[in-house]
Simulated scan of single mutants.
Amino acid sequence: MIEIHQLRYAVATADAKSFSRAAAALNVKQITLSRRVKLLEDRLGVKLFDRSTRGAETTENGRPFIEQARRIITDVDNLQTTARNVSYGLRARIAVGYCSPIMSGNLRLAIADYLTKFEDVQFDGIEAGLEKLFHGLHSHVVDVAVAPIGLEEDGIASRRIWSERLFAVLPMDHGLAEKEQIYWQDLRREVFVVPAGGLGPVFGNLIAARLTEQGKRPSIIVQDTSLESVLSMVAAKRYISIATEASQGVCWADLRFHEIHDPNGPARLEYALYWRRNNDNPALQHFFKLIEERYPG
């Protein structure tokens, strides 16, 4: 018999492309996860993953199984949520995905407003990278996602909502820290570090677009870690990074957040809401109404 936790282990491995990262995400021992996935493969008679020193890649034969397993997990989780809502006396549920921090800023305020105004709704926040968020939209795991503008997928609608200022994150004694204004060109010689997940890929593309000249690309190091860990690396004075104003909700004693300017004013990152066109969840309609009131288009 195939057990639900085996499906979770397999799907987590496919998403993380690594047994170790999947085990860390699920808070289980790597050897336990690896063995359970191997037992699942033996039971199915199908090799789900190609294993190498670089990680674990889903095989061509394994992809259809992983997608079906993902749908099964979603159905089971929805059943559990429905049962939990009934026990709590809640009548509805909304799952909001986001790839930016909610330490402060517009997203935090919007979520706080929703939780206050709709106390009978189960609110589930899902923080993930862009690829996982959009997969969640298509698989009905996520009702609505908050992400940078410009993303297009079949069946997904979008609406611009707000923008946030962009900041260079510098060690306190960096040569640019006391400069009155910083422009993109001031950062041309710097080495940047960005996270692999969340907004990291967006920041990496933005830095490359702004600072590439005559075929020479800026130095960008991608770390497979959290934004908080990346900022801790900046404090060690080897790199600098990029962040939005929402990242300043925590006090970073050793860092200076210095606003970046374009020729026309402060550099900003634009955000939009993304949702399935056929999503008729009433709790989602309430979320749209709240956003429209706070941030009229």
Rank of each mutant, 00 (worst) to 15 (best):
H5N: 15
R8E: 13
A10L: 06
A14E: 06
D15V: 12
A16I: 07
A22G: 05
A23V: 04
A23I: 05
V28R: 06
S34N: 11
R35A: 13
K47N: 13
T59M: 07
G62K: 02
E67W: 00
E67S: 13
A69N: 08
R71Y: 00
A83E: 13
V86E: 14
G89H: 05
G89L: 04
G89C: 10
Y98L: 12
S100I: 10
I102E: 03
S104I: 02
R108P: 01
K132Y: 05
V142R: 02
G150N: 10
G150Y: 07
D154G: 07
G155T: 11
R159W: 00
S163A: 13
S163D: 09
A168F: 06
V169Y: 02
H174A: 03
Y183C: 10
E190C: 10
L199E: 03
G200T: 08
N205P: 00
L206A: 03
A208E: 15
A209Q: 12
A209F: 03
L211M: 08
K237F: 01
R238W: 00
S241D: 02
E245K: 06
E245R: 04
Q248W: 07
V250P: 00
V250F: 10
L255C: 06
R256C: 15
H258W: 00
Y274M: 11
W275M: 03
R276F: 02
Q285M: 02
Q285H: 09
L290V: 05
G297F: 13
